[in-house]
Design a protein around this nucleic acid. Structure first.
Lengths: 332, 332
DNA sequence: CTGGTGTATGATATCGATAACATAATGTGT
DNA sequence: ACACATTATGTTATCGATATCATACACCAG
């Protein structure tokens, strides 16, 4: 930068100002600087700037996995929302593992992010402790945590499934089962399952029956065995709600194989509105969660949270609930 | 760090060494330092370290989009390969747009990455120029570029499709069409289409017929209209190869709707071996590209490239071809 | 003509670590 | 017992920008 300054016959400080778009640089000077930059092929070093300005321009984002298009879309949404301010995302994969999440948080903090975005509201005690000591804003997204650390943006998984059950009942189904939600580690799944159980009770339905799926990541292949087990355990079942569209698609494909007609033998509903769900045969009834939207909102909230005062103010913690919708298709 | 040093009664330099795992710190001193770190809740600042050591620990990765599970898997692979060395990925989305790629490259360089990973071998002239001036290694992945900048890791798209055509011919299909590969911007698609055309010629088949799809991202919804157009234009067609599994799935679903039996009326093959392709009905014949593997290999190559000498040595540029395989399923 | 206001620029210290070199303490072979 | 290697630690300068305060000059109202 000093070389550029020399060439443009100004001070390094003026170069810095010109490159950062400060208004108080005259047009003539700015032009001289820009051509010096061009001639020397100079590239600004943000990491040095980060040190002195104490603003790295990084936002850490931890997601369970990238192999789930929901999370990928969310990340893309966050990224787009932050790009306008030149912020860069640092992504980490927890692999649905809280220990790994804890380690990632520690690693991320060494990069001095201006904010941290986590997926879900369940963390190790140590992770919570570390985050509470930190002076950067934390956003938990996807699930609405019972005890938010700071801000949260998400869906009420239980409420969504309750809506879905109600819709199925409205369509005339009474014996409704659930696939998914293992006790050991699938927090989102468990939330949804609780919603299912509550809805069954509230609506006065005869029986709740859930087939657990094991720990995430849940994929298409889990659907087949689960539906076979379900039919064995509860032959009278009329409809099944799956913890995710992936699983539901697996269920539908197994039904094709077994020649159980969907929806007359078994109605199937999923969760997440994956792209394929609209095009598969029969097309899948599902709860549509706007993943890009949650990303955009999270990103915007992060900009607000980092833009304002340096202090974390508990009275300003936001709690954004992103609306969902039930999409009824051929499978119910 | 000075506070920690004072508390542990050593110098800052020793603290630095201890935290970076230098061997030449005695066990007793290390322990004193670690407990001081713990007591003070000190967190190392890598951005400061980056400035003085000139090693940021960042690798930039530019991909077209995250909404394609192939690229997501690749990124996850890269991330895993680099995590072992504590390197952090900086992701950017080009949206299949070279101008945007160029801007992203410039923005990334300001973060002083130790390496740059690009998707594909087609870039703007200015982007090439910028990358050539830069002293960090560049890896182009996915496509094997005609003029690689430095290293490349990928598949030969043309060769893969040639294999696929040959396999279809072996199965007895003669009238084979192709869907995808628009002239304006879909470089990967064009590569595949050229492979198709060459194979048709080499194998002495009666006719090559391609239905273009428009610019990426290609999704399921593009398949339906394309297959309808295909059947109109070439009613005698027996098999169709789609530029991607997503498109092929759209084709299959449209065939269900039109009651064109797959594969007896029309055989369908795709590209990419998406998870769904294994479970859809009929299950899809496809070219399996190991996306995680390409990511892992790219990541490892990057570690080699950044680990060695500081100079970029053209004689050491690697060109890794990742093997593919044809997976025959019910759709052909 | 004077004081006040604003704009454009410069000088210096500093952000928090590490590289490079220096030094002290310990061991090792002959 | 001595030179020499090895290990453990400290000192100082530096990485490349920006914050902060200082300064110079132009402009305008009274």
């Amino acid at each position: 930068m000093v070389d550029v300054a020399r060439r443009a016959e100004v001070s390094a400080m003026t170069v810095s100002r010109a490159l950062n778009g400060s208004r108080s640089v005259s047009a003539a000077t700015r032009e001289k600087i820009m051509s010096a930059v061009e001639e020397l092929g100079y590239v600004l070093d943000l990491s040095a700037g980060a040190l002195s300005s104490k603003k790295t321009g990084f936002i850490s984002v931890l997601i369970p996995s990238f192999n789930n298009s929901n999370f990928s879309e969310t990340v893309q949404g966050i990224s787009e929302a932050l790009a306008s301010e030149g912020k860069q995302i640092l992504v980490g994969y927890t692999g649905y593992d809280q220990q790994r999440e804890e380690r990632l948080i520690e690693a991320m903090l060494q990069r001095r992010p201006e904010g941290i975005i986590l997926t879900g509201g369940e963390h190790t005690a140590r992770a919570r402790h570390i985050l509470q000591k930190t002076s950067v804003p934390v956003i938990e997204m996807w699930d609405m945590p019972a005890q938010p650390i700071h801000h949260s943006v998400g869906f009420s998984h239980a409420a969504m499934i309750e809506d879905l059950v109600a819709r199925l009942v409205f369509r005339g189904y009474r014996r409704i089962a659930f696939i998914g939600g293992d006790e050991s580690g699938d927090f989102r799944g468990i939330d949804r399952r609780r919603g299912y159980e509550r809805a069954i009770e509230t609506l006065g339905l005869p029986r709740a029956h859930a087939v657990p799926l094991g720990v995430p990541p849940i994929s298409i292949k889990h659907g087949g065995p689960a539906v076979i087990r379900l039919i064995e355990e509860w032959p009278e079942v009329e409809a099944v709600i799956c913890v995710s569209d992936l699983c539901a698609i697996g269920v539908i494909m197994e039904c094709h194989r077994q020649e159980w007609h969907v929806p007359s033998r078994l109605a199937v509903a999923g969760f997440g509105d994956f792209e394929f769900s609209r095009y598969c045969f029969p097309s899948l009834t599902t709860v549509s969660v706007n993943c890009t939207e949650i990303g955009l909102q999270t990103g915007k909230l992060m900009l607000r949270a980092t833009g304002g005062s340096a202090v974390i103010d508990p009275s300003c913690f936001e709690r954004l609930v992103i609306p969902h919708s039930i999409i009824e298709r051929e499978s119910t």
